[in-house]
Amino acid sequence: MTQIPLKEIMPHEEFLESGHLACPGCGASLSMRMVLKALGEKTVVALPACCWSIIAGPYPQSSLKLPLYHSAFETGASVASGIKAALLARGDTETTVVAWAGDGGTFDIGLQALSGAAERNEDILYVCYDNEAYMNTGIQRSSATPLGAWTTTTPGAHPEARPKKDILAILAAHRIPYAASATPAYPEDLLAKVRKAKATKGTRFLHLLAPCPPGWKTADDETIELARMAVRARIFPLLEIENGETWRITVDSPGDPIGPYLAKQGRFRHLKNEDIGAIQAQVDSRWKALQRRVAGS
């Protein structure tokens, strides 16, 4: 296999400006940068409260070269629905409307609006960049926080005790035309999925794993490597689901042991070997379940 060089598939046009307020090594800012490259200039972004509310810059700045609406925490999907309705009302069928939300705004507080929009099959692209906790407020657990993780609200001897919510399965259950997971660590896969999503009508959902150096207690330069390790260890399989029925794994996850992935992150520092074993068992069982869904579709 000869790879196509990344520079030949990555569009050169930038829609993200320098000087944005993301922390060094932020996976969320890189995610936005890549996604927008694939979407192009005919894009409007609805942005509920999340890290990106800060990254986008304070008044009178904007770090995006695209129209952007800051909205309330739980309204990513509903504000986007309204924007799309307005564009259609004025005859604009071309512009892509993106709801860009964090895991809190998606898995937790925004889930109702998202479910509503998905059920209505609103013609929007909902992107959840998942950094696995409420990072903007200073690392509190969300329902996207993985089993065993430390956060400021799962402190000390009581790390996160519940497995991460399976958001993709929830979205798939809405029978939306397209749902997929991706990460900036695999740009080719990410771009292909964004392009596919862009070309699809109806509700499209992208779940992006966006490592967060301050929240995960990792080095700034490990963001991409961590996302890669998560994929390789089957913690974050890269897949796409069409119409809730056709499940497909798009990038091979060879099943590296999860230990090294956890060991790189301060939020898992307290884990003992048996904890890691339990997490591995959960990852394995989820992977098996995924394999069954893939095989069965």
Binding site: S81, I83, A86, E122
Partner: peptide, 24 residues
């Protein structure tokens, strides 16, 4: 008109916000 049959009043107002911000 485009009628967005939302799942809550909260989303109704949110959708109106999105629409109005888009100039309609």
């Amino acid at each position: 008109a485009r009628f967005v049959k939302v799942e809550s009043e909260h989303s109704a107002m949110a959708a109106c916000i999105g629409a109005s911000a888009t100039g309609v």
